[in-house]
Design a protein around this nucleic acid. Sequence first.
DNA 1: CTGAAAGCGCTTACAG
DNA 2: CTGAAAGCGCTTACAG
Lengths: 367, 367
Amino acid sequence: MLTLCCGCAFFGDYGEEHFMNKATVRDLAKAAGVSLATVDRVINGRSKVHVRTVEKVWQAAAKINFTKDIDAANIARQRIYRFCFVLPTGTNAFFKTLMRACKREAALQRDGRIQIEIITAPQLDNDRLLGALEDARLENYDAIATVTQDSPEIRTKLKQIARGGTEIVNLVSAIPTLDNSKFVGIDNAAAGRCAAELLCKFSQTDHVELGILLGSMILRDHMERRFGFEQKIRSAYPGHKLIFIGECNDDRHLAEDLVSKALGEHPDLGGIYSAGGGNIGVIAALEKSDRKDELCVVAHELSSHSRAALKSGIFDAVITQDAGHEIRSAIRIMKASVDGVDPDYQQNRIRIEIFIEGNMPVGEMLE
Amino acid sequence: MLTLCCGCAFFGDYGEEHFMNKATVRDLAKAAGVSLATVDRVINGRSKVHVRTVEKVWQAAAKINFTKDIDAANIARQRIYRFCFVLPTGTNAFFKTLMRACKREAALQRDGRIQIEIITAPQLDNDRLLGALEDARLENYDAIATVTQDSPEIRTKLKQIARGGTEIVNLVSAIPTLDNSKFVGIDNAAAGRCAAELLCKFSQTDHVELGILLGSMILRDHMERRFGFEQKIRSAYPGHKLIFIGECNDDRHLAEDLVSKALGEHPDLGGIYSAGGGNIGVIAALEKSDRKDELCVVAHELSSHSRAALKSGIFDAVITQDAGHEIRSAIRIMKASVDGVDPDYQQNRIRIEIFIEGNMPVGEMLE
DNA sequence: CTGAAAGCGCTTACAG
DNA sequence: CTGAAAGCGCTTACAG
């Protein structure tokens, strides 16, 4: 039997004194031969300090292995982190879940040092989104997490906010190549490839027609899913044929019409990928069809409707991202950015989750 | 556009003064008309305080909405949480991943107030496991998280440890009905049902032979997987036939022999559920077989081997649990228990993850 | 450019 | 059973 100590290469027996030796500012002040105030100035890079002094302090810090206690610092400075989430409104089930998760976390943080406000705006309305972001900018938050579009105006606005010293986190839908903004969400192209793989594995033959229904063509995440879906099918399942069912803009009736129409026009349609929004409509169309049993369906996001569809067999699999994880990751990343610390990449990565009936989470987890 | 405030039912515009009003011990002392020391005694339930005083303080606390700043408390009391993980040794890939994740978190917590030590013991060796737990007990940790067997001796030992005031968390494999111990891990019966569902959906007909390979019959998690697997197949896919391939005890050669033998004896075998350990052997057996393309395989746990098998098509899906999440959840639960706070059920729940080629995590996440 | 002192929110002896 | 004072690790005016 082996006893290991917390990450340091120390094996075997040892006494208490092996730990507990965390150096404090006082130790550092003594080691560097300066006052507490100067130590504080140096380690926080505050006002002018003589280069020689700075050197001295950092060297002493390295020698005694000083790391500052961020909790103590926050108490002394009465620090309250002011974070803002700019979230989309609308009937989209996932966005509702995201909003709920955000309110929940905000309430949980209420007793801590993190204060969270939420501003809402329709994701597809570029102007109102810009307005919401401007409102957020004026509040001078420490950090803003937002689900947006990737439009030139939005990019400009986000850059302006970042210049003001506010950290930016993009949620759910990435805005690539925007400097300094972090992304919290799934790899949507991979999600699309995943959907392709599932539909093809569930299919009985290697030459079926597969349809894809989108939410909106101007949302980058939806386009990425489509991209990944097509890519995977062409490369790995070239016998299958791809049909574009249309975009439903989160409108259940439009979604239903589009799917019904596709079913009518394509008697050989063997599978559907519902890549964003419109699940209620897709379900309605399939329930009215006599082909719902033979059709394979892979949809996005867990909701009461998609769960029921999974249970009844209308959906074969649901690809999803955990809204709670996304909100918490965003908060952790905002805090790490503001603290000037490296966020933990591994903990903050969002997984592409696949649910079938067997691993569907139970209970009140989602609603 | 709507601005929401952090969980309180407050909508619309508001000024700064809406927040920032966290009451402190000083406020509470004043409100209750007592000293700081007495406030401290009451809110921490320390020594004898007159009932009337206790009442007064709690009432005042409720009135001014006092919640104590746990960070400040920890600083004042120079609190270091002493946690211990008792983890299994052996060649099992998942346990190696778990160990790595644990060392990583231990190192990350190094600068915080949480000190983590690791004690190892072979999971299948009841006596050495007992010895490891006894070693841990003698250290009087604040909390212990452990992957164990569910044997009567272990139960007794865990109860003894708990009586000593140490919080117990069971990791990966549950020990049901053991009072006061918390479980961090997946619902293994659901994982088994999940495997059944996947194998059946991937199968071309509704009457195939499906084999299950186990790690060990004396591990509760493996038995639960088998239970769920059989349950699901009997109830939802009664046309399929179930074959017990055997238990491999994490021995790759034994696993290979068992699978090869099963392939030989069951020419109609259409799918295999590798429910724990032995993936390397399963892969070896299939690679030597000329039926690897037509056979569906669902295995447990992501590792370099299972990832390669997923990529090459030998495995069709891998069911897994995230070792990093489990370690972090365990730490959060240990801390919450020690602090006497309710752990966040939602954040600490471990999901049954399904990986196919498309959503396999990339990069250095696992090794 | 630097330091002594008071303070953040909570706790711990010590004295009564 | 209760309180005044000093302390945890860090920061903030203020004075030099």
